[in-house]
C-alpha cells in the first residue's frame, strides 16, 4: 500500500500531495456541495443573482417533504434490494467466467470474450423495444426480476473483463504450487486467485452496485407499479410537465448519493479484508 513511501519528511512532497488532494476534492465535490446547499434552501433562495453556497435561512422542509409525503423511502429500499442483489449475482458469475477466460485455453475463447463485450456496443435506445418484448414473454414485466436480469446482463461484460485482467496479473506458479499440494482446480481458484484479486473484486462490486443504483431507462420501461419503482425513476416525480421542484429534487438526490458512499466504504473495508483473511485461513 505504501509504495511511494516518503523517506525524507519532504515538506515539498507533502505540499504537492495536499495541493493535488485539494484540487481533486474540489473538482469532485463542488457540484455535490451545490446540491446539498440547494436541498437546505427554501424556494426563494434557489435562484439568486449572485450564487450563494450557504443558505441564508436553512430549512429541513425539503427533507420533510421527501421523507414524509412521497414514496421516496420505498423507492429507496427497492433500489437497495435491486442493487445489492445485482452486485452479488454479477460478482459470482463474473468471477467464475473471468477465471475461466484467464486460466484456460479452449476453442472459441477469443470470440466468446469479444461477444461478451459486444453487448455493451449497442445503444440501449435500439434494443429497448425487443428487450421489453423478451421481458413480456418471460412474464417479468413489473417485477424486480426484470431489473436484476437486465442489470446483471449489462454489468457482466465489464466485470468479466476487469476481473480477467486481475487474474491475468497473478503469477500462475502460485496455483501450480497449490495443485501440486493436492488442491483441486476449483480450490485453487477459491483459495489463491480470488483472494489475490480482492482489490479487483472490490472495484467490480462498486461498479455493479452503482450501475444498478443509477439506472433509469430500463427501470422506467419495465416497471409501472408504484411499490416496485426504484430511486432514479422516483426522482422524476419532482418533474412536472413544464416545471421542476428543485429543492425536494435535490434533497432526494442527496439521500440517493449518501448510501452509495457508505456502501463503498463498507465494501472497501470489509470485502477486501474478508477475502484476504479467508485466504489465510483457508
Amino acid at each position: 500500500m505504501r509504495k511511494f513511501r516518503v523517506r525524507r519528511a519532504g515538506v515539498v512532497r507533502y505540499c504537492t500531495l495536499y495541493v493535488a488532494a485539494a484540487l481533486v476534492l474540489f473538482v469532485s465535490l463542488f457540484p455535490f456541495l451545490w446540491m446539498v446547499s440547494t436541498s437546505f434552501k427554501p424556494p426563494s433562495e434557489t435562484f439568486t443573482r449572485v450564487p450563494r453556497l450557504i443558505p441564508v435561512h436553512p430549512t429541513l422542509e425539503n427533507y420533510r417533504i421527501v421523507l414524509g409525503e412521497t414514496m421516496i423511502p420505498r423507492y429507496f429500499l427497492n433500489s437497495v434490494y435491486v442493487a445489492l442483489l445485482t452486485t452479488a449475482i454479477s460478482l459470482v458469475v463474473a468471477a467464475l467466467g473471468a477465471y475461466g477466460f484467464s486460466r484456460f485455453r479452449f476453442p472459441g475463447r477469443s470470440p466468446a470474450l469479444l461477444m461478451i463485450l459486444s453487448v455493451q456496443m449497442f445503444p440501449s435506445v435500439v434494443i429497448i423495444i425487443p428487450l421489453f418484448i423478451v421481458m413480456r414473454n418471460l412474464h417479468l414485466l413489473n417485477t424486480h426480476y426484470s431489473l436484476l436480469v437486465s442489470y446483471t446482463t449489462f454489468t457482466l461484460p465489464l466485470c468479466v473483463w476487469m476481473l480477467k485482467g486481475f487474474f491475468d496479473g497473478i503469477p500462475r506458479e502460485l496455483e501450480e504450487a497449490a495443485l501440486i499440494d493436492g488442491c483441486s482446480k476449483f480450490g485453487a481458484f477459491l483459495r489463491i486467485a480470488l483472494p489475490l484479486s480482492a482489490q479487483g473484486i472490490v472495484a467490480s462490486a462498486i461498479f455493479a452496485f452503482i450501475g444498478a443504483w443509477n439506472e433509469f431507462m430500463f427501470a422506467m420501461t419495465f416497471i409501472n407499479i408504484e411499490e416496485l419503482k426504484t430511486m432514479p425513476v422516483g426522482l422524476t416525480s419532482f418533474f412536472g410537465r413544464f416545471t421542476v421542484e428543485w429543492n425536494p429534487l435535490m434533497a432526494a438526490s442527496v439521500l440517493f448519493t449518501i448510501p452509495s458512499l457508505v456502501f463503498f466504504v463498507f465494501v472497501q473495508r470489509n470485502l477486501a479484508r474478508g477475502l484476504v483473511s479467508g485466504a489465510v485461513k483457508g
Partner: peptide
C-alpha cells in the same frame, strides 16, 4: 476522505448531476 469524495461524481444520480 479523498478516496470517498472521488466517488461522488459517479454516484450522484445522473439526472440530477
Amino acid at each position: 476522505i479523498v478516496a470517498v469524495a472521488v466517488l461522488v461524481p459517479w454516484v450522484i444520480p445522473r439526472i440530477a448531476s
